[in-house]
């Protein structure tokens, strides 16, 4: 039997928790189907941008990728990025790791668009850092110049919370904070740590106002050409890997809060999360036309 080559790309550094995910994936494949697969991983954006991955999978020059693009694939998938859509880790698990009805719907949308989801991962809940302003509830954001990624629902929500959201490219955040172009930003702890934002910020509020999941996908064409008997194994291997990645990301983020505190950030733990609800609801209303209210509610109510 010929070896089946599988080329997987992602744009995180080689040492990222995605490596644990793909490492476990390879290990399980090798254990259950010895010698059948040759999995090649291309980290650190070696093969281009995530937009390119999507198109390359359609062209057949790339077999799979781990990525965090959603609305670009199908606007309904923007539901995954809505602010305050996930209550906590258990809720994320219910939506993306339980095989629930809503997970099937999300996977189904991606399949329609030509991508087979093997499993979901995450970078973690996002926290707001500022240059001194202590954010305990939504009204503390009033008038704050904060950098956010260029995601429409976030812009809407941050405006509703009274802040001035400024979308800058990630690479420019550090110097923008240093220069005072913006005075705050929000990211998962891992990004705050690796990009050294703690050097130019004073406080971090554990708002957990959003969480961008990432998906490990294969192109539908590639998936459908895989021999029947290998598919379940591939799915299982990706899921086992994702459990490790998700656990590692959550643990690392928890540890990093302590390390960021040691680096001098004041950690605001007593955040009134419910105060962010009303502003988030405004962004849901604005997105209803493209996402569909029933999908938003399905995610909100997943148990």
């Amino acid at each position: 039997q010929d070896k089946i080559t599988m080329r997987i790309a992602h744009n995180m550094p080689e040492a990222h928790s995605y490596a644990l995910w793909l490492g476990k994936f390879k290990e399980v494949l090798e254990e259950k189907l010895p010698g059948r697969f040759d999995v090649k991983v291309f980290p650190a954006a070696q093969l281009g941008t995530e937009t390119e991955y999507l198109e390359s999978m359609q062209l057949g020059t790339l077999d799979g990728a781990i990525m965090g693009r959603h609305g670009q694939i199908d606007q309904r998938l923007d539901v995954l990025n809505l602010p305050m859509i996930y209550r906590d880790d258990a809720h994320v698990d219910a939506v993306l790791h339980s095989g629930s009805e809503v997970q099937e719907r999300l996977d189904g949308i991606l399949f329609e668009r030509g991508y087979k989801v093997l499993a979901w991962g995450e970078l973690g809940f996002r926290y707001i850092t500022t240059n001194g302003k202590e954010v305990r509830n939504a009204s503390d954001l009033q008038g704050l110049d904060i950098r956010v990624p260029n995601v429409q629902p976030w812009l809407t929500a941050f405006k509703a919370w009274g802040a001035n959201p400024t979308p800058l490219p990630f690479e420019e955040v550090y110097s923008a904070l240093q220069q005072g172009v913006v005075s705050a930003q929000e990211n998962p702890p891992e990004n705050i740590w690796t990009s050294k934002f703690y050097e130019v910020q004073k406080t971090m509020s554990l708002t957990g106002h959003a969480n961008i999941p990432s998906q490990f996908v294969l192109s539908r064409g590639y998936w459908e050409k895989l021999p029947e008997e290998t598919r379940e194994v591939v799915l299982d291997a990706a899921r086992q890997g994702s459990l490790i990645q998700v656990a590692a990301a959550r643990q690392a983020n928890a540890d990093l809060v302590a390390r960021l505190e040691a680096e001098g950030l004041t950690i605001i733990r007593d955040v009134d999360k419910e105060s962010f609800r009303a502003g988030a609801e405004e962004s849901y209303k604005a997105s209803e036309a493209t996402i569909g209210r029933d999908l938003i509610d399905a995610v909100l109510q997943a148990q």
């Binding site: 281009g48 941008t49 390119e52 390359s56 062209l59 490219p169």
Partner: peptide, 18 residues
């Protein structure tokens, strides 16, 4: 191994950069 369409695809994306 790869479709020729990868060449024009990569050519454009190679200069699609801020």
């Amino acid at each position: 191994t790869f479709p020729l369409a990868q060449i024009p695809h990569k050519m454009v994306n190679g200069v699609y950069s801020f």
